[in-house]
Design a protein around this nucleic acid. Structure first.
Length: 258
DNA sequence: ATGGTTGAATGTCAA
C-alpha cells in the first residue's frame, strides 16, 4: 500500500496540482487536509477519471478532510464520535484493505496562549484518549495528516529561534508524546535522521524551499503491527516548487501488507 | 519585534 498525506490548502484551488501529482505518484490511499469545501460542493467530478473511492468530511472555508482510495472504503467515521466536539471537520477514519486509516488535521493554534491555542491543547489531549480507545497497537492502524507540530529541533529550520513558538512548543511536545506513547511509530524518523526534511514552507518567506526554511509537521504513524512493514517514506518536495502550490508538500509511505 | 503570502471571502480571518 502506497499511502500519502497532503494538506492541499483548498482542494478546489489546488486541483491542477493534485491531479498532476496523483498521476505521477499513483498512490493507493491519499489523506487530504484543508479541503475547505462543504460536502455538497466537493469536486468529485474532477477526480472521477482517476478511479478513486472518496470519503469526505468538509465544511465551508476552513478545515475539511478527505480520503481517496483505489480499494473500496468501509467503516467510515468522522470526528471524535463525541457530542462535545461536534463542529469542525478535522478527523476522518476508515478501513481500507484491512488497515484502519485515521486522517487528522490538527488545529494550528494560531498564537501561544490564545483561545485557539487552548483549543489545540485540548484537541491533542482528546486525540490521545481517542487513540487509547482504538484498541490494540497489534492491530493494523495508520495515523497520518497535518499534525501541526515539529516535535524535534531537527524538524524545523533555526530551531533555537522557534522553540516556544506555535508548532514547536514544549506544551505541544508533551501532548504529542502522550499520544505517541499509545504505540505509534513516526515512520519517517524510523528511516531518516537529521535536519532539512520538511513538509511545510510558509508562503510569506520567499524561496523558502530553496533556502530550506521549512517545518516537518505532516507525519505518518504506524501501529506496532505495521511499523516493520514500512519499506520507504519520503516527501515529494518538488510539488511545493510548482506554480500555485499548497504551502505543504505530500508525504508518502510504502507498506508491504503481504 | 515585525512583516512578508495565500485562500476563503468580498470584511477580514485563518494559517
Amino acid at each position: 500500500m502506497k499511502i500519502a498525506s497532503f494538506n492541499v490548502n483548498s482542494v478546489r484551488a489546488r486541483m491542477p496540482r493534485l491531479i498532476e501529482w496523483l498521476e505521477e505518484a499513483n498512490p493507493d490511499v491519499v489523506a487530504l487536509q484543508e479541503t475547505k469545501v462543504e460536502d455538497g460542493t466537493f469536486p468529485f467530478a474532477d477526480l472521477e477519471p482517476f478511479g478513486y473511492h472518496i470519503s469526505i468530511h468538509g465544511q465551508k472555508s476552513y478545515n475539511g478532510v478527505a480520503i481517496l482510495s483505489r480499494s473500496p472504503i468501509s467503516d467510515v467515521e468522522t470526528g471524535f464520535g463525541d457530542e462535545a466536539w461536534p463542529t469542525d471537520c478535522r478527523i476522518i477514519r476508515a478501513v481500507i484493505d484491512g488497515v484502519q486509516i485515521i486522517n487528522t488535521y490538527v488545529p494550528n493554534g494560531t498564537k501561544v496562549g490564545g483561545d485557539k491555542w487552548e483549543y489545540k491543547m485540548a484537541w491533542l489531549e482528546h486525540f490521545g484518549k481517542f487513540c487509547r480507545d482504538l484498541g490494540s497497537t497489534s492491530d493494523k492502524i495508520i495515523w497520518l495528516g497535518d499534525i501541526n507540530i515539529a516535535p524535534k529541533p531537527e524538524d524545523v529550520y533555526e530551531p533555537e529561534r522557534h522553540v516556544g513558538d506555535v508548532g514547536h512548543h514544549p506544551d505541544e511536545f508533551a501532548r504529542l508524546e502522550r499520544i505517541v506513547d499509545w504505540g505509534w511509530t513516526d515512520v519517517f524518523r524510523q528511516q531518516t535522521q537529521g535536519p532539512g526534511h520538511y513538509t511545510f514552507w510558509d508562503f510569506r518567506l520567499p524561496n523558502s524551499v530553496q533556502r530550506k526554511l521549512g517545518w516537518r509537521i505532516d507525519h505518518i504513524y504506524a501501529s506496532e503491527a505495521l511499523k516493520s512493514k514500512c519499506e520507504r517514506v519520503w516527501v515529494d518536495e518538488h510539488v511545493r516548487l510548482r506554480e500555485k502550490p499548497s504551502d505543504h508538500a505530500p508525504i508518502l509511505a510504502e507498506f508491504d501488507l503481504d
